[in-house]
């Protein structure tokens, strides 16, 4: 065979390039480098992720620890050093003397945690159900897809509210504050699994008729093995895209729920909670309490969303 005998093009010799080299030369990186918007979006995302993860080391105070709050510093405007305590408030402070900057760092921590966890939950649930529905077909498929259809007729935030209320109803009142985060994750995840299930079902139905799956069947491999070793890796591409866009949606859903007062309590504020708290002061002159958490949410959701859109476009030709 005359495969490797093109000396003119064996630029880097014949050793296979390392995984890193291969990645850096890939079309994804190439496309990333050529789109300034995407570069900015990823930098913003990275910055906010870093801020959230390293909040305890970056933030000047821990807004969850009442002992660190100075009530006398309440309503300090941004970029001001308090004359009473000598603390510097980059983005001002709220009615309890909480540093808005620190609150945003800690708040986005919770927002991102809920976002990631609920997307993961929706992803696992939706992908599993989609795989089963697409692979087995028949009544399982019909049942799952009708449930999905019904769920899609409700706005997902309404669905999340409903699920949130139902789960809370089963929990003793004493657990409400501590379990809030888990309940939120389940509620948002349950309202979002349909996207994954539908995409995975469709791709599975395409993949299962491909000849490599038939080849596995001729060998006699058990269905479970075919499903998880052959089909699953091949349907993950759209899942990845949906997950990225879903992350932005989940963060917004969490913020909405918290804004409505059913999400995170004010003692453990997420970005949504901060916005809810802040809106009380909007017309009384303390605009920073609302504006900065709002901007943070906007930037986070927007940049994650832009990344998701870009990822979808890059991977799109291979979706079908």
């Amino acid at each position: 065979m005359s495969r490797s005998d093109d000396p003119a093009h064996g630029l880097k010799g014949h050793e296979a390039p390392s995984r890193l080299q291969a990645f850096l030369a890939s079309d994804i990186v190439y496309s990333w480098k050529r789109q300034p918007v995407v570069i900015v979006a990823s930098l913003v995302t990275l910055l906010m992720f870093a801020g959230a993860v390293f909040a305890p080391w970056i933030a000047p105070q821990n807004p969850f620890d009442p002992r660190q709050l100075h009530l006398i510093d309440a309503f300090t405007p941004p970029l001001t050093t308090s004359e009473l305590t000598g603390n510097f408030y980059l983005l001002g402070s709220d009615g309890q003397g909480r540093d808005v900057f620190s609150a945003i760092l800690y708040g986005s921590r919770i927002s991102l945690l809920v976002g990631f966890a609920s997307v993961l939950f929706a992803l696992v649930l939706g992908t599993t159900l989609g795989l089963v529905a697409g692979f087995r077909g028949g009544w399982r498929d019909a049942l799952l897809m009708r449930i999905a259809d019904i769920q899609l007729t409700f706005p997902s935030i309404l669905m999340a509210l409903l699920i949130f209320g139902v789960i809370r109803g089963f929990l003793p009142r004493s657990l409400h504050a501590e379990a809030a985060i888990i309940v939120l994750i389940i509620a948002i995840g349950l309202s979002d699994w349909v996207q994954f299930a539908r995409a995975v079902r469709g791709t599975t139905m395409v993949e299962k008729n491909k000849e490599y799956v038939q080849a596995a069947r001729v060998i006699g491999l058990p269905d479970v093995r075919i499903l998880f070793q052959h089909i699953l890796p091949n349907v993950l591409r759209p899942v990845l895209v949906i997950a990225t866009i879903g992350l932005a949606l989940a963060i917004i859903a969490e913020a909405t729920l918290s804004f409505l007062g059913v999400g995170m309590p004010p003692t453990q504020p997420s970005l949504g909670t901060l916005i809810r708290v802040g809106q009380d002061y909007m017309f009384s002159g303390e605009w920073w309490i609302l504006l900065f958490p709002g901007l943070a949410l906007l930037m986070l959701a927007l940049s994650v969303n832009l990344l998701g859109d870009w990822l979808r476009d890059v991977l799109n030709p291979k979706l079908r």
Binding site: K210, E211, Y212, Q214, A215, H230, P233, N234
Partner: peptide, 9 residues
């Protein structure tokens, strides 16, 4: 199989 592109994972 027929299709050399679809018959390999």
């Amino acid at each position: 199989f027929q299709d050399p592109y679809a018959s390999l994972n």
